[in-house]
Amino acid sequence: MTRSLGEVDAMARKAARGAGYAWGLAEEAGSAVRWLEARGLDGCAALAATLQTVDQGLDGFSPDADWTSASGALCPVMTGAALSDQIADFETELSFGPVIAPILLVPVVAYMAMQRQQDMTLEAGSGRAVVNGGGLRTEGPFSTGACAVTIRAGGAGDGGALQVAELRTRSDVLPDIWDQLDHFATKTYAPATEASRLKGAGAGLTDND
């Protein structure tokens, strides 16, 4: 069974919110996961791993001005949001980390590439992604654990021209990963009570007429 990208975006957003992120950050999670899934990359698994890790206390994974955190590891959602907000300050290379599930930073690096109109590269452990305006090349498996990250301008030129990514319209996220996200998403739903059923949705009059 495949999921529509609308479902993926909504699930990622709700899951992040359920894990305690502010709504504006949860929106970043939804957007990043959708971007990755549209390119055949496993954004859902990356977010699920992130949420399991930060479940111990979100604040400890928040980046400070020097791209470090209290716990030692950085949350990719908060780090990605901060990077996205500060792309004007990026010069040619930035190393930081470790970052949990660093593939979640790739959409932000793609945005940097588009703004700067040049290739950009993200390296994290065995994973590497080169991006430009529409093109993308990934190499090696990206860890869903935490690893050091380097973002640099340029495409490290040896892999040939970038293919313009063919966008997918569906995600074939594994049921197990979907359930992990749903576990967090469920925390955003208010338990139903008879009062809310009657009052909250506004029934009262008969509708069988």
Binding site: A22, W23, G24, S62, D85
Partner: peptide
């Protein structure tokens, strides 16, 4: 926004 993620939305 780094200090106030609650206002990001």
């Amino acid at each position: 926004l780094m200090q106030h993620p609650e206002h990001r939305h």
